[in-house]
């Protein structure tokens, strides 16, 4: 059983939901990423998504765009990313999901890329521009290397397509909560909770449903969970916190924010 799958199994047995946290590798520095991850683990995050920057992140809002450009400018590349993953792996065995864009994998070849990141300690992959119709080679390589493939669905995805996408997904399925890019959503509309309920009805207990894009506060996390989400995914809010905090305080700040989010996933 994959690390992500067994994590959800353990959480279910404790009647908890999952907190999934996103950070951009190397933002603002690799050292800060390590501090942030220490804070995430101590604060009780269940799964970590690690962003590998891409020059043209067209599904991302301003916060993640800025983080990615900063990281690239400071020299983030594939070998440094692998070093970072290996360092993280020395400290924690928390499930690690790599989030980037299709071209980064395509350029090296899906199989070569995936087998390399798997060896470094990556458990799953999220590619926001990988459509199911184009995913044959990608899926084959991921399966061969035992890496979970987390696809995304949206509030406007048709039920038949949700089924098809969930068949190709492993670990969890990622519901994009809003029409928009990643980053701070002030207020969620009814269609978001409707989309969660609808997706849950289709998925039943086949695969856990994570909800993200713009979830940034404990109140919003609660709303997603009460609508049926099995996991909440928070990204931009962590990046904003990291950027606004001096390096020596990042671990503590992140720990405390993480724990406030994690509370919303515990049984009442």
């Amino acid at each position: 059983m994959s690390k992500i799958k067994s994590k959800f199994k353990v959480l279910r047995s404790k009647n908890q939901k999952a907190l999934i946290a996103y950070v951009m590798a190397g933002f603002p520095t690799e050292k800060d990423t390590i501090s942030a991850i220490r804070g995430l683990v101590k604060g009780g995050a269940d799964i970590i998504e690690l962003g590998m920057p891409f020059s043209d992140p067209l599904a991302d809002g301003p916060v993640i765009q800025h983080a990615g450009f900063t990281s690239l400018q400071k020299g983030m590349n594939f070998s440094r990313f692998l070093e970072l993953v290996k360092k993280i792996r020395k400290e924690t065995d928390i499930p690690l999901v790599l989030m980037t864009y299709t071209n980064i994998l395509y350029r090296q070849g899906y199989d070569r890329f995936i087998s390399t990141v798997k060896k470094a300690g990556i458990d799953g992959l999220i590619l926001p521009d990988m459509s199911i119709g184009e995913s044959h080679e990608f899926l084959k390589a991921a399966k061969k290397n035992g890496v979970d493939t987390i696809f995304l669905i949206s509030p406007n995805t048709e039920p038949d397509r949700i089924k098809k996408i969930s068949d190709a997904s492993s670990g969890f399925l990622y519901l994009v909560s809003v029409f928009g890019t990643t980053g701070g959503q002030q207020k969620f509309q009814g269609y978001t909770t409707h989309a969660i309920k609808n997706a849950k009805k289709i998925l039943a207990s086949k695969i856990p449903l994570g909800v993200g894009f713009g979830v940034s506060t404990p109140e919003q996390a609660k709303l997603m969970i009460s609508s049926g989400a099995d996991a909440i995914i928070v990204g931009s809010a962590f990046l904003r916190l990291i950027e606004g905090t001096p390096s020596n305080k990042i671990e503590e700040k992140i720990r405390s924010f993480t724990s406030s989010l994690k509370k919303t996933t515990l049984p009442e």
Binding site: L58, I165, F179
Partner: peptide, 11 residues
């Protein structure tokens, strides 16, 4: 060619 796009744009 093909269609490599975020899911929101598929419909």
């Amino acid at each position: 060619g093909g269609s490599y796009i975020p899911e929101t744009l598929v419909p």
